[in-house]
Write a protein that binds this DNA or RNA. Sequence first.
DNA 1: CAGGTTAGTACGCATGTGCTTATCGTGTGC
DNA 2: GCACACGATAAGCACATGCGTACTAACCTG
Lengths: 150, 150
Amino acid sequence: MSATPRKDLAAMIVPLGRALAAAEVPLLREHGLTMWAYTVLLGLGEQPLRSQAALAEAIGADKTRIIEVLADLDDRGLITRTPDPADRRVRLLALTPEGRRVRGAAQAAIQARENALLARHLPPTLRAPFLEALTTLSTLPPDSLTDPTP
Amino acid sequence: MSATPRKDLAAMIVPLGRALAAAEVPLLREHGLTMWAYTVLLGLGEQPLRSQAALAEAIGADKTRIIEVLADLDDRGLITRTPDPADRRVRLLALTPEGRRVRGAAQAAIQARENALLARHLPPTLRAPFLEALTTLSTLPPDSLTDPTP
DNA sequence: CAGGTTAGTACGCATGTGCTTATCGTGTGC
DNA sequence: GCACACGATAAGCACATGCGTACTAACCTG
């Protein structure tokens, strides 16, 4: 049975995530972005998003906290917040071309760094399976990891 | 070149880590442990550890913050803090048998849950490579992920 | 022995974040 | 039309965490 003596998954993953996130910060700074701003830009995909609450939900942020982030990004012309004509309570969120450019530039820098890191530290045969497994796990619905769901 | 359109590593790993850590909390509670207490028990391996500062460093905690955790674990008989006869300023930290038992029980519960989770969500061919890659990355020196180190 | 250093401890401050409440404009159901 | 619901916003509280300071006991150097 307990044939695999190893550390806990979380004990390995959490520090790894911390380190990767910490490594991103300076790169984001060079592009004038905070982590939250970058997260918002990533959360705004290609299609405009309806309502800030939906965005907050999607990126796991507090809806009262991203307001200033959104206001800042709006001021700087990276996103637009236009009232929905159909329901003027909600704001339609969309990337501007400039926002798309900045997001792309930041992401390119980050992923280039990450790829170099994987190339340096991970044996070639492990890279693809690792990324695939990671993608699989990260696209699961949020509670399939938290619930025991038998 | 940019042949792999994917999310950032950190964008996948960090939420995953959060979810896994959140899933641990209730299990730890059942064993009377907080996350920090559990981290301390994991940090105290088989050999006793010299000095609390070393422990804090090892588990990435603030040395002024784990004091009460250590005091609590000591009070509950899960660890011992004995002054080093050679240098009575430093405390030798060690697991008691009971501490070892509790740590083992908690870890067994956690890993059983994690294994079930992997079995449910990850194709069999990906499991071993995923764990191996994760182990590799998580045993790297902390700054090899943060530094660009050329 | 005197002065400087270190480990452990306690305390306070600043920050980030989650959660709650209040307000305002807008929509919707009765 | 009016009461209630909802989205966005602002303000405040609570808690965890990181960081710095101060104090004590012990060690070490000269």
